[in-house]
């Protein structure tokens, strides 16, 4: 029993996409540009050469926010989307009927269709792979060259992530929507 979350030192990100490959390899995600459980957001740079805005050129690593109040879970008509014992938002593929309500409801665009099972797939913090093997962290956290991520139990005051969130300024994406994401961006 835990309440898993992730803190992202997003300024470390160099958009190398190691996390995307590690995720695909670990979790057997299919190929295809729209088949990402995890991605790095890049905006087109502002300005004209050579007067370009460095500050407009940020890399935003992202994935499922594992919202504590998850719109995807609320709209799922078959309860295929559920919170597991560690408050990770999961999909039970046996129950998914591919109505795609969750894909519409997710404000973070974190869900996609797995063409093999014809169900909706998403990040599950490596719950059925690494965590099931007894590892303590996700594939993306582990492989990251610049160590963007810290993964851990938000309910444990002794955890590294709890300490980070107590001591470092941070923000959440689309916080005004009230989804209570469990991904935290450190500034």
């Amino acid at each position: 029993m835990a309440r898993y979350g992730m803190a992202l030192d997003y300024k470390n990100c160099i958009n190398c996409k190691a996390c995307e490959v590690a995720c695909k390899e670990e979790n057997g995600v299919t190929l295809g540009a729209d088949k990402h459980r995890i991605w790095v957001g890049v905006k087109e740079i502002e300005g004209e050469y050579p007067f370009l805005s460095i500050s407009s050129s940020t890399f935003m690593p992202s994935q499922c926010q594992h919202c504590d109040d998850a719109p995807c879970q609320m709209v799922c008509p078959t309860n295929a989307t559920y919170f597991d014992e560690n408050r990770v938002v999961r999909v039970n593929t046996d129950q998914c009927i591919l109505c795609s309500y969750c894909m519409v409801a997710c404000p973070y665009d974190a869900r996609f269709v797995d063409d093999r099972t014809m169900t909706v797939d998403k990040c599950n913090f490596c719950s059925d792979t690494r965590l099931a093997q007894g590892k303590t962290t996700t594939a993306c956290q582990n492989t990251c060259p610049t160590k963007v991520r810290t993964f851990g139990d938000l309910d444990d005051p002794e955890s590294e992530i709890s300490e980070l969130l107590r001591t470092r300024d941070h923000f959440s994406l689309k916080a005004h929507l009230g989804t209570n994401p469990k991904l935290f961006y450190l500034t």
Binding site: K24, A33, K43, E44, S62, K174, A175
Partner: peptide, 29 residues
């Protein structure tokens, strides 16, 4: 602090995402 982020608004990487749509090739298969 609030930041508006929508993945589809971004170019993926340099040019990758805008070029090829979802090819139905499976990494595992």
């Amino acid at each position: 602090m609030q930041v508006e982020i929508s993945r589809r608004k971004f170019l993926q990487g340099t040019v990758a995402m805008s070029v090829v749509g979802g090819t139905a090739v499976s990494a595992t298969n």
